[in-house]
Design a protein around this nucleic acid. Structure first.
Lengths: 238, 238
DNA sequence: ACTCGCCTCATGGTCCGACCAAAATGGACT
DNA sequence: AGTCCATTTTGGTCGGACCATGAGGCGAGT
């Protein structure tokens, strides 16, 4: 049994995100929610505060009103991914676009300001991607680890915060699909080698170009995983 | 007189951000904070919940402990900028790096998936940047407006959320130095014309290259504004 | 002297009932 | 139909209380 105020908050967030309450509409009053959730008003208030802090509603004397989704905090991404059984593929793709580009930015920062040891440690993370005989899970893990560590090595706090937020909200919601991922090991290995060379030579254009290709491959892999996952869902439904 | 729980939250956030309470340490208990702020425990709890939601502390039975800064939410950026009278220049530069790159990503999305009308509306926003006789404030405003609208036109929700968060936290804290900004109008006008051409021809490489130059100019402008602002501070101190 | 396990106490989570100021609402009056 | 005002509703705060759990200290055993 998790914390009650969080249960209430999750229910409210779900309702807002599924447009049960639309932008501009009033949310139920705290006292109404007390009866609906059979909880104390303090718990309801903490839930409302959480919803408000996520930027999903403006709560002020007279009532709480739902905000436009575009005005929310980045932290809602996780909730959006978790709304349906299977995350929205287009949203996942959008996240990948952002992540891939931020990784590229971070890598640029490392190449420009990072120490040789930092670059060396990142190159070490490429090794698992060159091996084509490891398990799929290990390969997925290696890719995540690479991107995460590049972000952390960037010494750019906003970058790190965005990356951590996206990764943390992404990972748990994508696990349902991850099993269907069939990474093109040969291409990943190729890009890993190219990245290794670019890092060694501090060749910025080459690195960015390789990252672009790497990003495209990531998106293709995820798109294919989604197709397989949906086929699996249909098979279950029959 | 703002809301009490927010006052408490702001004070706690300030203390955490200025390392009065360091990572791993315990935060004062809710009952201690009640006496310290002369507030009700409910208000203190809501403040603690806010701090926790910002990812600055983990609050669980037994006590609340401060988290590593890297584990915070992106929403702390605004508080970080507002800690001192003058924002941290290096943090501002980091934000600019991220924003500039995300704008570039967003523009790419628009060029790839956007309608001709969307592109046209963005091109209209370039006009003010080509005029070299407008006021500095108008020019600053025009740049902000351009970047914001590109982000919004991207149809990429995570991108929009990040952009809005960064812009909203950035703008109010940067106004103190905004007055010192002396944009290189000629260069901005040149890039605006180049962007206009690239958008018209849907020339992706040209657009990205121009955005890179645009980004560099933005950083230079901000760095110069900081130098002037600091000189102004010293003059006051004397 | 050290370690391990227990027991107490402090802490967070929840509940109840109450009051206040501000906003929303509805009706009376023009 | 439009305007103004009194009522009601709503969020914000307060005080006190209870419970389950984790923290921390104390003592028994080695």
């Amino acid at each position: 049994m998790s914390i009650k105020s969080d249960q209430i908050a999750d229910a409210l967030i779900h309702d807002v995100l599924t447009a049960r309450y639309r932008a501009g509409e009033r949310l139920p009053s705290e006292r109404d929610l007390v009866t609906r959730f059979d909880a104390n008003r303090g718990a309801v208030r903490e839930a409302m505060a959480k919803v408000a802090q996520l930027g999903l509603a403006d709560v002020l004397p007279g009532g709480a009103r739902v905000r436009e989704r575009e005005l929310a905090s980045l932290d809602v991404i996780g909730y959006l991914l978790a709304q349906q059984e299977l995350p929205d593929p287009s949203l996942v793709d959008q996240i990948l676009v952002v992540i891939n580009n931020l990784v590229s930015v971070a890598a640029t920062q490392v190449l420009e300001h990072g120490s040789d040891e930092t670059i060396k440690s990142l190159r070490d993370l490429l090794t698992p991607l060159m091996q084509q005989d490891s398990s799929t899970d290990a390969h997925n893990e290696a890719r995540f680890s690479l991107m995460k560590n590049i972000m952390l090595a960037s010494n750019n706090l906003p970058l790190q915060l965005i990356a951590r937020t996206l990764f943390e909200q992404f990972a748990p919601n994508i696990s349902a699909i991850g099993g269907h991922a069939l990474p093109d090991r040969a291409r990943y290995a190729l890009y890993a080698r190219q990245l290794d060379i670019a890092l060694t030579n501090k060749d910025l254009p080459a690195m960015r170009a390789t990252f672009d290709a790497f990003a495209e491959l990531n998106r293709e892999t995820m798109a294919r995983a989604f197709m397989l996952a949906e086929r699996g869902q249909e098979a279950i439904a029959q």
